[in-house]
Structures are given as structure tokens and as C-alpha cells.
């Protein structure tokens, strides 16, 4: 059971959190302007990175706040967690494709 650093509560056990998939996939500003294919990409397509990527978590059994995390999917190691709206830590040197947004 890993410890996850909630940006509001500090390190807590993984079981307190729920997973929210890839981070930085913003809701399109004007969905009606998108082609069917572009919309389908937003709705259905996500990266499947082996390595460093950004993902969303929610501290479900405590503060119930959403936040973002950068994790290495090969080791599960959390490299950073940060609040929504904060920029994703620059981990481009460390690896690959941390989200689209």
C-alpha cells in the first residue's frame, strides 16, 4: 500500500484515494466546433505510457479534493503531486508524454 502525498492533507494511504485517469485532458472550449473524430479523441482516447506520466487522483475518504500526480507507471513511484491549476512539474527530461493539456 503506497503513500500518496495529497497536496492538502499530506501523505496518506493509497486506499483513501480514487483514481481519475490521465491528467491535463481539458474539456474542449467549444465541443460543437470539433469534428466527430476530434470529439471522439477527447471522449475515448487516452495515452498508455510506460514511464513518466501525469494522472488525476481524488482524496475520496478525506478532503475529497482532486489533484494531479506525476507517476512512473513502470515502478508506480510518485514523482510529484500538485493542485489543479498548478503547472505540471517539468519532468520532460525524466521521460515521456505526460498528458496532452
Amino acid at each position: 500500500m503506497q503513500l500518496i502525498e495529497c497536496p492538502w492533507c499530506g501523505p496518506r494511504e493509497e486506499a483513501e484515494f480514487s483514481y481519475g485517469g490521465q491528467a491535463h485532458v481539458p474539456y474542449p472550449a467549444d465541443p460543437s466546433a470539433l469534428s466527430d473524430e476530434e470529439w471522439a479523441h477527447y471522449v475515448f482516447f487516452r495515452d498508455n505510457t510506460a514511464g513518466v506520466w501525469a494522472e488525476r487522483w481524488m482524496h475520496a475518504t478525506a478532503c475529497r479534493r482532486w489533484f494531479n500526480a506525476v507517476r512512473d507507471t513502470r515502478t508506480h513511484a510518485f514523482l510529484a503531486t500538485y493542485r489543479p491549476g498548478d503547472p505540471s512539474p517539468d519532468l520532460t527530461a525524466a521521460g515521456t508524454g505526460a498528458g496532452r493539456g
Binding site: R64, W66, P84, G85
Partner: peptide
Amino acid sequence: EEWLQTEWP
């Protein structure tokens, strides 16, 4: 909550 916090804060 998800929409409120992550898209429309």
C-alpha cells in the same frame, strides 16, 4: 464534484 473542481473551479 469532479466537474466542479477540475473543469469549472
